[in-house]
Computed example of a mutant assay.
Amino acid sequence: MLRVFCGPRGGYGNELGVVRDGSVLPGPEERQEFAAKLGFSETVFVDDPERGVIDIYTPTTRLPFAGHPCVGAAWLLDVPELVTPAGVVGARQDGEFCWIEARAEWVPPRTLRQYATAAEVDELPLPPKGEWIYAWAWLDEPAGRIRARAFPGRDDGIDEDEATGAAALLLTDRLGRALNITQGTGSQILTAPQPEGWTEVGGRVYLER
């Protein structure tokens, strides 16, 4: 189990389950059942550690791409790229941060909802199920600092996601600038637009157990 997008002092971050030998659960039904049993927002199955081939599941569905699973898997496997159903994800280590490079069109639909102040985002109640909402506000617009919370809207027990790289990627693509995002209770996500429609997403990763 990893924590991905941890804060500056190593706390917070979104939990991620990683099955390092995906061959022990080769079928999609088995993987879905195991991901539901673990109950993390996402679980990664590694099908080829040398080539970085991975398969990502929420408790209820398979995902072609997801941000914090890719950052966590890239850190754990220490590979230059990951192979996902959505496409090949670039990966690199840079000091305390692990970065991936992906495309906004790989991200499933999300509602990016801007609020006037960070306090409004902090005070939001859980929205109704059904709509995936990324609520955000500027903390410091000139510096690119943002406060955000993520509500997946799924009926799987994950009411709020602590840190979501894919939604941060979408927001970066929309705003067209590098961002420093504080999400959830204290997780940190860094992003940066890249040429030709690519976006980098980075954060700290820690091995929990």
Rank of each mutant, 00 (worst) to 15 (best):
L38P: 05
A148C: 03
T199M: 03
Q32H: 09
E30C: 07
S23A: 15
D78H: 13
R110F: 14
A116H: 14
A167Y: 01
R3F: 10
G87R: 00
E105Q: 12
A104L: 03
G11I: 04
D156Q: 04
V24S: 13
R145F: 01
A135Q: 00
G176H: 11
D155T: 12
R3L: 11
V201K: 01
Y206A: 07
P59C: 02
I189M: 04
V24N: 12
W106M: 00
P59Y: 05
E15R: 11
T111H: 14
D161A: 04
D21W: 05
Y12G: 09
R62Q: 14
G72S: 12
F40L: 01
A86K: 00
G39N: 11
E101M: 11
P26R: 06
P49A: 05
N14W: 04
E15L: 03
A167D: 01
K129A: 15
D159Q: 10
G10F: 13
D155P: 01
A74L: 12
V24L: 14
W138A: 06
F40A: 04
G184T: 06
A86F: 02
A36T: 04
T185R: 12
G17D: 10
P128W: 07
A74I: 06
G186C: 04
R9C: 06
D21G: 09
A102Q: 02
E33A: 15
R9S: 14
V107I: 00
R92Q: 10
F151I: 00
D173F: 05
A116S: 14
E101F: 13
Q93S: 13
V18K: 06
L16H: 03
P69K: 01
I181V: 14
G90C: 10
V89T: 05
N14T: 06
T172D: 11
T191E: 08
R31S: 02
F151A: 04
F45E: 14
E42D: 07
V205R: 04
S41M: 02
A167T: 02
V88E: 14
I56S: 02
R204Y: 12
Y115R: 09
L171Y: 05
T182S: 12
E123F: 07
Y206P: 02
C70T: 15
E15Y: 11
F34L: 03
C70F: 09
G72M: 08
E200V: 02
R51D: 15
Q188V: 13
I56C: 01
C70S: 13
N14C: 05
D140S: 06
L63G: 02
G144A: 03
A86H: 00
R174G: 03
G22C: 07
W99Q: 11
E160W: 05
T182D: 09
E101Q: 13
G95N: 10
E50N: 08
G13R: 01
W75D: 13
L25Y: 07
P142T: 08
R110S: 08
